[in-house]
Write a protein that binds this DNA or RNA. Structure first.
Lengths: 255, 255
DNA sequence: CCTTGTGAATCGTTTCACAGCA
DNA sequence: TGCTGTGAAACGATTCACAAGG
């Protein structure tokens, strides 16, 4: 979910629900695969199962875009690909910059999924002068000093932050000051941004922690009961038991 | 959200809402930072703002865990760190394997956030024989042939898939057959898994597409109207207009 | 007859607002 | 007095079930 308090609460016109927007890329991927196999039409049932959702949800989602199906038949694949692409804004070109070219930044730079949608990596930026000039994914790494100029020259409105947590807020501030209004943040920090700027967060360690929660539950069920003594009296907890957490996350990469 | 149809619908005992579970790691991070600065207590207001949520939500979330605060005062930082860690299952050790050691897999292997929570990278696995034996993040890359043995020897229940999309389902099947019951999937595919296996998905390109949607909206608003002719008659769309999408995503890395 | 599109019912989450307690 | 804990209200998303329409 976007972190910054954004998203017009009023405006009330073509309101596509957030949950629906988040699924459109999923449908698009499934449709693209069908399109490659030259499948002309799909039913909501088929497409839903390819996208990993149920058909009622899919139909409701599509109903927000308009009436693009044919009753008794299904949806025209090419037509839907086009409609969803347009709705998502992928029929235009989006230059993005990636800041922080460690392993993660490099992985992102090499990621084919960007180019094949409307995204074009306009520049790779890193704070380490020693990295400057090195080629990654066919692009030279440029130094942070050039950040503002790069944003302006390329009309970049989307920035990807793949720096260590400590650097993220400063990078974010500079991106925003230079005109970026959407940020994809891989650093494990809460970024604060002015109104009108969207932040989305991808946090590897959080995803694992959620898995661990469910995993623990499963283990508990195998034994047929609650896993841990869930409610021991507060006084019983020895403060030194967990000896004061072990230094938080040097984070993703030396950037 | 988890993709596989999982999550016990019945059981009905200590039901912590999914939305709450997903925020616990966030609180934990904020609390850990406070703990390092030796802050003894926080109010819901302070902690909420550090975690980027509002205080009512945070209090409701904590109320599912129990009554861990003190009215008029706030929450004991160390105590809460411990309670949340335990609830998330982070007081135990979780061995994980990472399959697919391209740039992304390497970034994950180097990611400090794993070790500092209860996660231990038990092995790195790649299908490329030429990679086998190379050291990444202090661990040797091992060949896919060894996958089953590694899982068993290390009692691994959590697997991370960072392979190209084409390989993901097969890797997933092998992981599950070998006993893995939680999967974090970075490949842009819908994985199908048997009941009882949890899948969480991180998709870089989807996040960007969601940003593009909102970005487009902003651009449209600047001009004070709808961006695109949102509803043109179906017949008007020339099928050859978007010439059949350009090959989906070679994906993350040559793995 | 088949599949879409959608009101209405349901479910889960968030927010409000205040009683309860240190 | 101040902040937690929580019922109750509001909101949003999902699912149901069926009428509409090719």
């Amino acid at each position: 979910m976007a972190t910054g308090r954004t998203h017009r609460p009023a405006t009330r016109s073509r309101g596509i629900p957030e949950a629906t927007v988040a699924r459109l890329p999923l449908y698009l991927r499934a449709l693209t695969a069908l399109s490659e196999r030259s499948v002309p039409t799909v039913s909501s049932e088929e497409l839903a199962s390819a996208a990993g959702v149920n058909s009622a949800k899919l139909r409701k989602d599509f109903s927000y875009l308009g009436s693009y199906g044919t009753r008794g038949v299904g949806y025209d694949v090419e037509y839907l690909v086009y409609q969803i692409s347009r709705e998502l804004g992928l029929t235009q070109d989006w230059p993005v910059v990636i800041v922080g070219i460690g392993n993660l930044g490099a992985a992102l730079a090499n990621y084919g999924g960007f180019a094949s949608r409307g995204f074009r990596v306009a520049a790779l930026i890193d704070a380490d002068p020693a990295q400057a000039g090195k080629m990654v994914a066919g692009l030279p790494i440029r130094h942070t000093d050039e950040l503002e100029a790069i944003i302006e020259d390329n009309q970049v409105s989307i920035g990807v932050i793949a720096t260590p947590a400590g650097a993220a807020q400063e990078v974010c501030d500079r991106l925003v000051a230079a005109g970026v209004t959407s940020i994809l943040n891989f650093a494990p920090t809460v970024l604060s941004v002015p109104d009108g700027v969207d932040v989305r967060k991808v946090d590897l360690s959080i995803e694992l922690q959620i898995l661990a929660f469910h995993e623990q539950r499963k283990a508990g069920e195998d034994l047929g009961g609650a896993v841990a003594p869930t409610s021991l009296p507060k006084a019983a907890v020895d403060r030194s038991e967990r000896p004061g957490p072990d230094g938080d996350v040097p984070v993703v990469m030396p950037a």
